[in-house]
């Protein structure tokens, strides 16, 4: 069956395969957001630490990771480690690792900027009550930074979701690679990649929706 130039039957045939890939894309996204946020929080705290060495290590991390394309990092993790140290990561492990390390660097910058955007008087008021700097961070600074972080973090999460398409080059079968594989069989780039694109669009839109909801909820619970 055709509707204008669109071969509906073909679309119906490839969609389940692409959706299966999309599930893997979601899994990769969630995992790398999770680990990336943990890495990001630690690196951010390192960067603002009063211990110079930690600050330098944190700065080095974000400098290197943000300065090298994710694609190159993935090649190093997947092919490079195998060649040099005989460490053959599975495509999935390499994908999650690479995405988390990379996402962590950007998230660290977001968290650092968020923490430093909080008025210095807040830290001083907390310290003057007798709090340790860790307590002040946990009770006063981070809860305030948290809501300012949501919008840029949302952007970063969406970027991360789109970046998962890069792991198709290390043979990780997610949405993009499912499309590529289908195309090597059918040679129908337009239908296949357009569908892939639309599925990404649906997923990112849904993501944005969730983040907007979170922001609204937060605004209400904080009384302004």
């Amino acid at each position: 069956m055709r509707i204008g130039p669109i071969d509906v039957e073909f679309l119906l045939a490839i969609t389940p395969i692409l959706l299966k890939g999309a599930l893997m894309t979601i899994e990769l996204t969630v995992l790398s957001i999770f680990f990336g946020t943990i890495i990001g929080l630690f690196v951010a705290l390192m960067k603002i630490s009063r211990f110079k060495l930690l600050a330098v290590i944190g700065g080095f991390y974000t400098w290197v990771i943000r300065g090298i394309p994710l694609l190159v990092q993935l090649f190093i993790l997947y092919y490079g480690l195998a060649q040099y140290f005989d460490i053959q990561l599975s495509p999935k492990a390499a994908a999650v690792l690479g995405l988390s390390i990379c996402g962590g660097a950007y998230i660290a910058e977001i968290i650092r900027a968020g923490i430093q955007s909080i008025d210095k008087g807040q830290m001083e008021a907390a310290l003057s009550l007798g709090m340790s700097s860790t307590q002040a961070m946990r009770r006063v600074i981070l809860p305030q930074a948290y809501r300012r972080l949501l919008p840029p973090m949302g952007n970063e999460f969406i970027a991360l979701m789109k970046d998962t398409s890069l792991v198709s080059v290390i043979t990780m079968v997610e949405l993009m690679r499912s499309g590529i594989l289908l195309n090597t069989t059918y040679f129908r780039s337009m239908e296949i990649y357009l569908t892939v694109g639309i599925i990404y669009l649906i997923m990112t839109t849904f993501f944005i929706y969730i983040i907007c909801r979170l922001e609204k909820r937060l605004a209400i619970s904080e009384g302004d």
């Binding site: 008087g121 807040q122 001083e124 907390a126 003057s128 007798g130 340790s132 809860p143 904080e222």
Partner: peptide
Amino acid sequence: KNVYRLRSRMGMVFQRFNLFPH
């Protein structure tokens, strides 16, 4: 720790209040 304890015995009030807004 001793610094924290000493601080807790001194109340400080700032020009710009510095209440915790959250």
